[in-house]
Design a protein around this nucleic acid. Structure first.
Length: 428
RNA sequence: GAGGCUGUAGCUCAAAGGCAGAGCGCCACACUGUGGAUGUGGAUGUUGAGGGUUCGAAACCGUCCAGCCUCCCCA
């Protein structure tokens, strides 16, 4: 009590108490299942990279303002990775002629971005990345969307709760061109489209006119953004949509001309997933097709398609939807109590028997009152409690209480593990 | 980087310038070989930090720190 001041953790860094760790592992497990169902290989890169790797995309806010950068003892600038794609590009380029294409890789690991922590955003987060490199077809794009949709399905997020919205950069570029919007204004227009849902209609109109569009172009643009059949005029989109039907995931997918994605490197299909039933407005994941992946790190150009999903937003959604309990996990099935200071050897021997049989077993570390040990068992959510007092030890048996139905029986020690295993799984 | 809200017991929150409280949780007992439920009793605070105003501050003022929300950006 003398020292009460707790040393604070790093702002925006994550703390995973057992309940949060269970959620993180749940997301990791579903990501792994979805990835492996499509035959993707797990990989990872270093968490530390030189700043040069990201500086290839100079001018990018991600690097200049959102990266954690520090000097190592030799004075070199080291970056905590803010994203995976540059690492992917480098690692593929290093073995460009050894790898077999199309490459299907997935990864789940930590990333860092120096930004203001808020709902759905922290400075340290885990991200699932999935990429297919070395192929350029709408069917490959569909495959990636299918991996993502499969994750949603495995996680219990059905198409009634989530949607994957898709669009195509080339299609939109054609529309902009048809409207006579000059190429140099298109980036600003893309950003404006991205921001449209967050602004009031009048203000958005004014904002677009300020960029330099004519009133006619504005109304044309709004017609385009309201045309949900626009995809039918794009051969790529038609093939993509057909592939999604064949792959059995089309119920998740909707065409939406308002999906642009801020990142510059997307060149074709783009997509983002949203929670449509809950309170979280941020994208669950986002991705798309990129060309010239390797050019900037010194390799020969390769096309790819990929997406990334952070753990924070999807974690919020899973909790809100009640799909993952906000409780500590309960790996142990049995608590072996210690009756008094003399009976520890018998209790420890019983716990060893159970563990040898593959049963997750807690052993009390000291002989406190049995009542206290039972209360602990209840909180630990174990099913069985084993008691061996002097009577049981003399008879070479153990008392086993089933907390679920409050029954208790005496079992010969030789049958202890089998008895409990059968109680846990009656099929045995 | 910009704006807003909040910070009181382990947790959720009351107290609006005048004695720091409740519920839940925790501990003990009822029940000295047995959990959940119930009852009775008990412990717990530098009111985020350090200053100022005041006879008197949890409250008012400014500083710092932290958390939450929005913008920016994005997973």
């Amino acid at each position: 009590m003398a020292e009460k001041k707790l040393i604070q953790g790093v702002k925006g860094a994550r703390e995973f108490y057992p309940a949060e760790m269970a959620l993180r592992n749940y997301i990791y497990d579903k990501a792994r299942q979805a990835s492996e169902l499509y035959g993707f290989l797990e990989w990872d890169g270093p968490f530390l990279e030189t700043i040069d790797l990201y500086a290839a995309k100079s001018g990018d806010e991600l690097v200049k303002e959102q990266a954690f950068v520090f000097a190592d003892r030799g004075g070199d600038l080291i970056t905590l990775r803010p994203e995976l794609t540059p690492t992917l590009a480098r690692m593929v380029a290093q073995k460009q002629n050894e790898l077999s294409y199309p490459l299907r890789w997935w990864s789940f690991g930590p990333f860092w971005r120096y930004e203001r922590p808020q709902r759905g955003r922290s400075r340290e987060f885990f991200q699932w990345n999935v990429d297919m490199v070395g192929v350029n077809s709408p069917e490959a794009d569909a495959e990636l969307i299918a991996v993502a949709a499969t994750f949603l399905r495995l996680s219990g997020l059905g198409p009634d709760k989530t949607s994957i919205l898709v669009n195509n950069r080339k299609l939109m570029d054609q529309q902009f061109s048809d409207l006579g919007i000059e190429p140099e204004k298109r980036l600003a227009i893309s950003n404006a489209v991205d921001r449209r849902t967050k602004m009031e209609p009048d203000k958005w109109d004014a904002y677009v006119l300020e960029i330099g569009l004519t009133a006619q172009q504005l109304s044309g643009l709004k017609a385009v953004l309201g045309n949900y059949d626009l995809w039918k005029s794009s051969e790529e989109m038609v093939r993509l949509m057909a592939a999604l039907v064949s792959l059995g995931v089309s119920e998740y997918v909707k065409f939406d001309p308002n999906i642009m994605r801020g990142l510059l490197y997307y060149t074709g299909t783009v997509f983002e997933a949203f929670d449509t039933s809950g309170s979280v407005k941020r994208a669950i994941f986002g991705g798309g097709r990129y060309d010239n992946l390797l050019k900037e790190v010194g390799g020969d150009p390769l096309s790819g398609v990929g997406f990334a999903m952070g753990d924070v937003v999807v974690g919020l959604i899973l909790r809100e939807a009640g799909l993952v309990a906000a409780e500590d996990p309960a790996p142990a099935k049995v608590l072996v109590t210690i009756f008094n200071s003399e009976t520890y050897p018998a209790a420890a021997a019983s716990s060893a028997l159970l563990r040898k049989a593959g049963i997750n077993t807690l052993l009390s570390p000291e002989a406190t009152k049995l009542q206290k040990q039972f209360k602990f068992a209840d909180k630990a959510k174990v099913r069985f409690v084993v008691v061996q007092g002097p009577d049981e030890i003399a008879a070479n048996v153990a008392s086993v209480k089933d907390l679920q139905n409050a029954t208790q029986v005496q079992v010969p020690l030789a049958d202890l593990a089998r008895h409990i295993a059968q109680g846990l799984d009656p099929i045995l």
